[in-house]
C-alpha cells in the first residue's frame, strides 16, 4: 500500500480539508511538521573543508546515483566553474579564493539546508513535503504531482527536477540521509569527511559549539553562524572566515520564508474568497447575459 492512488489522495485531501476548516484557528501545520527540540543538524566549518569532494562521492553512493570511482574526485579542475546541486548530484563543493592565504582556498559545500520553517513544506499543494522530528525536510515521491512549487519557494533554490526523465520525473534534493539515520547511521557526507568539516549532532549543541569556536578563534572566523537565524533557522549551519554573501550565500532575513508565500496564499484563499468570487463572477456574467437576452427579446 505504498503507492497512493488518486482516489486515496482525494480522500485524504477531503479529510484534511474538513479538519482544516473545522480547526482552522488552532492548527496550521500537520502534526508531522512540529519542530522538535532535539532535532539534529550539521555544522559546516568552511575553514576546515579541504575540498576533497569525498562527500559528493559518498552522497551519490548512498542514494544509488551514478558516480565515477572515488579517485576521480581528486580532480580539482571542476572548481573552475561554480556548481549547484541538481538531480544527479544532491550536494556539491565549490571553491573560492582566499585573499589572506592563497594556498588555502575556501571550499563551501552546498546542499539542502533543512530549514526549521521550510518554504517547500508550505508551498507543496499536495502535502508531500514534511519537516520530520529529526530535523530533515523530506518529501513523499508518491504524493508529488510534479508542480515544482517547492523549487520556486525554496530560498536556497535547492530542489531539482528530473527534466530529462519524461515518463516519471521526480523531485531530487538532499534528504539528510533519512533512511540511513533511521537505521542509526550517520548521513553519508558527514561519515566520510576526512577532516570532519561537517559535524553531525543535535542542532542546539552545534550552535553552542559554533559560538565557542568563534570565541576561541576570533581571527579565524567572522562573528556569524549562518543558519542560526536565517529564514527562521536551518538545521544545517555554517561557519566561515569571510562574509557569507561573498561565498554565494543568499542574503536572507530572519523571518521564515513561508511567511511571505503563506501570507499571499492564505490571504487569497481566506474565507473561500476565490470560489465565492468565481461564482459571483459567473453569476454576474449569467445575469448580464440574461438581461441582454431580455432586452433583445423586448426589442424584437
Amino acid at each position: 500500500m505504498v503507492n497512493q492512488s488518486r482516489r486515496d489522495f482525494l480522500k485524504t485531501a477531503a479529510l484534511a480539508g474538513t479538519a482544516v476548516t473545522g480547526l482552522s484557528s488552532k492548527t496550521k501545520a500537520a502534526p508531522k511538521n512540529i519542530l522538535s527540540e532535539d532535532r539534529m543538524g550539521v555544522l559546516v566549518d568552511t575553514t576546515v573543508c579541504i575540498g576533497c569532494r569525498k562527500c559528493e562521492w559518498a552522497c551519490k553512493t548512498a542514494h544509488n546515483l551514478e558516480t565515477p570511482s572515488i579517485e576521480v574526485y581528486d580532480d580539482r579542475s571542476v572548481f573552475q566553474t561554480m556548481r549547484r546541486p541538481n538531480s544527479k548530484s544532491l550536494t556539491v563543493v565549490n571553491e573560492y579564493k582566499n585573499s589572506v592565504e592563497e594556498k588555502f582556498p575556501i571550499n563551501v559545500k552546498v546542499q539542502c539546508m533543512h530549514c526549521d520553517h521550510p518554504a517547500c513544506v508550505s508551498a507543496c499543494i499536495v502535502g508531500a513535503f514534511s519537516k520530520e522530528e529529526n530535523g530533515s525536510v523530506i518529501w513523499d515521491t508518491d504524493k508529488c504531482i510534479g508542480c515544482r512549487y517547492c523549487m520556486v519557494a525554496c530560498p536556497f533554490q535547492v530542489p531539482a527536477f528530473e527534466f530529462e526523465s519524461a515518463l516519471k520525473p521526480d523531485i531530487k534534493k538532499c534528504d539528510f540521509c533519512f533512511e540511513r539515520t533511521k537505521e542509526g547511521k550517520l548521513p553519508a557526507c558527514t561519515e566520510i569527511c576526512p577532516v570532519e568539516a561537517v559535524t553531525y549532532g543535535q542542532r542546539e549543541d552545534l550552535v553552542k559549539a559554533a559560538h565557542q569556536k568563534i570565541k576561541n578563534y576570533p581571527d579565524r572566523y567572522i562573528n556569524r553562524v549562518f543558519g542560526e537565524y536565517e529564514v527562521g533557522g536551518t538545521s544545517w549551519i555554517y561557519l566561515a572566515s569571510k562574509e557569507f554573501e561573498k561565498l554565494d550565500f543568499p542574503k536572507l532575513g530572519k523571518d521564515p520564508a513561508p511567511g511571505v508565500s503563506e501570507a499571499i496564499q492564505h490571504g487569497i484563499f481566506a474565507y473561500f474568497v476565490p470560489p465565492v468570487a468565481l461564482y459571483a463572477l459567473l453569476g454576474g456574467v449569467m445575469w448580464i447575459n440574461k438581461n441582454k437576452k431580455k432586452s433583445e427579446n423586448e426589442e424584437i
Binding site: L43, V48, I50, G184, L186, T190, E191, C193, P194, V195, E196, A197, T199, Y200, G201, Q202, D205, L206, K208, A209, Q212
Partner: peptide, 21 residues
C-alpha cells in the same frame, strides 16, 4: 566513533586529518 554527543572537538579521524592537511 564519529557519532557522539560531544561535538565541541573533532573526532579522531577529523583530528588526524586536520593536523596532517
Amino acid at each position: 566513533i564519529r557519532k557522539r554527543t560531544d561535538v565541541s572537538k573533532p573526532d579522531l579521524k577529523g583530528a588526524y586529518h586536520r593536523q596532517c592537511m
